[in-house]
Design a protein around this nucleic acid. Sequence first.
DNA 1: CGGCATCCGCCAAGATACTG
DNA 2: CAGTATCTTGGCGGATGCCG
Lengths: 132, 132
Amino acid sequence: MLIFVIKTKKKMYEKKMPLPLECGLAMTKEILGGKWKPNLLLAISIGINRPSQLHREIPQSTKRVLNLQLKELEEFEMIEKKIYHQLPPKVEYRLTERGETLMPILRQMNEWGDNNRSFIKSVILKRSKALD
Amino acid sequence: MLIFVIKTKKKMYEKKMPLPLECGLAMTKEILGGKWKPNLLLAISIGINRPSQLHREIPQSTKRVLNLQLKELEEFEMIEKKIYHQLPPKVEYRLTERGETLMPILRQMNEWGDNNRSFIKSVILKRSKALD
DNA sequence: CGGCATCCGCCAAGATACTG
DNA sequence: CAGTATCTTGGCGGATGCCG
């Protein structure tokens, strides 16, 4: 069995599963799964580390969603949140050491996407035309 | 602006967007976004290449969903489908060259997940307890 | 500025059953 | 064994507004 699905709701012993070979994938997807998490991590890594800045970089999303995803990244200790208690309030995020270990993956994903951008775009285009 | 969102529906010229720096990420997520796509690619790469085999490896999913995702991977030319016209029918998938270029990323994700498995599990556990 | 509460719509994915 | 047709669902993410 290849997969270990992270579902705390399901009892893992209902079906006896052979130890999952590729469990790691599921773990990583748990961290990077959110719609904006990779982007958030990348942005923070290059110093865009305040909520308003991040929202400006990702205006397609909303404060709410970004907050949710930042909170999860924080729970998993990929980022740290520093709160300055002042008026107006000020918050800064930064990558933890653990978060840093994700950067090679993100950079590689980014690079791969760049290298294949034109091809992928063409497929998407072809696809959307097929809808007519 | 960090993000290029792949939305063929929205007119990209409504808001004039500065050219996206990290566009690559969106591309890669377009390919690996499906729930089982990374697993499918990994499985195929190690020779688990027939639909029934794949379904056996990922019993949490269904034939239907696996088929959908395989079809998309095929559209993006990450995998090739070989159909043997016989009875009973037989189908085999294999990675294309382009698909091979994804493997380093998948392996890295897998490795990262393995290295962080215990920590991530503990966070998930803590979280689910917090629901009581 | 940063955060939270509410409401809502969509769509990917699950369940099931059927054909060749 | 492989693939398709329906129907259903849950939850993620989007929209909006208020508060300190």
